[in-house]
């Protein structure tokens, strides 16, 4: 049996390395996307084998649902009119010119890799890390799942900054492009039915993941990713929200998560003198409130990222012309 798991693990690891190399080296961008999606699937399995089901869940939700769709949409924008079987990168004309500078990043990467390798090899072979301390303080954290306790309580500011990073990513996309809110062509009965059937199930599963995060793998990011996937599916099926919802209501929903986090951080700072240090009796409720707000914001941010531009800018331009 140990032999079986050993064979399984080494096969998994080798396939991961091979897939990563193929996805990077492949000149056909579509093939690279498919290889990357397959890489995400195997990566989730690897996290499972490493006994990290929380990370596997996040990888499943983001890797399988969103990254593939985002990359596919980006590819379509790169090649709007070309034939669908020819997504190959056009060969560079001045390859020789580029080549003379290529050794510089190669040397830099080699140095970083050597440094990282040295650090990894100089680590003690076994270290308990902070897991014993987390386990000792789990009772007052408000969550019985240690990962949720770390993310939302012990290192809550990390999560706060991560949510702000998502918002910044969306602002970056908005500053680059505007999105059309015109309804796309009717998707056909199959996709329409699929979207109608799956969207409620996505929302239900997102709520389940949010709730289960308190005591088992799950939580705001995974739930938000599933919620975002529901939005992406609706957008793909041709649905567009009303233009009126795109101005203030969308922005309010987008900042709900970060704003709730900041309010709680300021309140705890004023009351306890320490940012995001919850009173143990209310910790569970506070974590649930924070996670719910974060889930909604993450879901809407991811769907808005897929829309690929500022939906309001487009309206403004239209009004001017």
């Amino acid at each position: 049996m140990t032999l079986l798991t050993w064979v399984f693990d080494s096969l998994l690891g080798l396939s991961l390395l091979w897939l990563a190399w193929r996805a990077l080296a492949c000149p056909d961008l579509f093939k690279a996307i498919v290889l990357f999606v397959a890489f995400g699937l195997l990566m989730a399995l690897a996290w499972v084998r490493l006994a990290a089901p929380d990370v596997a869940l996040a990888e499943a939700a983001i890797g399988a649902g969103l990254t593939g769709a985002l990359l596919m949409a980006a590819l379509a924008k790169l090649h709007p009119t070309e034939a669908h079987d020819d997504f190959t990168v056009p060969p560079e004309k001045n390859v020789t010119k580029v080549w003379s500078w290529q050794w510089l990043p190669a040397v830099a990467i080699l140095l970083v890799t050597t440094g990282l390798g040295y650090v990894v090899l100089s680590l003690p072979p076994y270290a308990a890390g902070l897991s014993t301390e987390v386990a000792a303080n789990l009772a007052i954290s408000g969550a019985s799942n240690p990962v949720t306790a770390v993310l939302l309580n012990f290192r809550g500011y990390d999560t706060l900054l991560e949510i702000v990073v998502l918002l910044l990513a969306l602002l970056g996309v908005w500053s680059l492009n505007s999105a059309s809110l015109d309804r796309k062509a009717a998707p056909g009965i199959v996709l329409d039915t699929l979207a109608r059937l799956l969207t409620p199930i996505f929302i239900l599963v997102a709520a389940y993941l949010l709730w289960v995060g308190a005591h088992a793998p799950g939580g705001a990011f995974q739930a938000g990713a599933v919620l975002g996937a529901a939005g992406v599916l609706l957008l793909l099926a041709g649905w567009r929200p009303r233009a009126g919802l795109m101005a203030l209501p969308l922005r309010l929903v987008l900042v709900t998560g970060p704003a709730t986090f900041v309010i709680v951080a300021v309140l705890t700072l004023l009351m306890k003198g320490q940012m995001l240090e919850y009173p143990p009796t209310q910790a569970g409720v506070l974590i649930l409130i924070l996670e719910t707000a974060a889930t909604v914001s993450i879901g809407v941010t991811l769907a808005a990222l897929f829309l690929g531009g500022d939906p309001r800018k487009n309206n403004r331009n239209k009004n001017q012309t």
């Binding site: 649902g65 593939g68 769709a69 596919m72 379509a76 996709l191 599933v226 996937a229 793909l236």
Partner: peptide
């Protein structure tokens, strides 16, 4: 469960966009 639900997303994006 999450995989089973979301696996179709890439295919839908493929059919609609690429």
């Amino acid at each position: 469960l999450v995989f089973a639900l979301l696996a179709a997303m890439t295919a839908v994006a493929f059919v609609r966009r690429a």
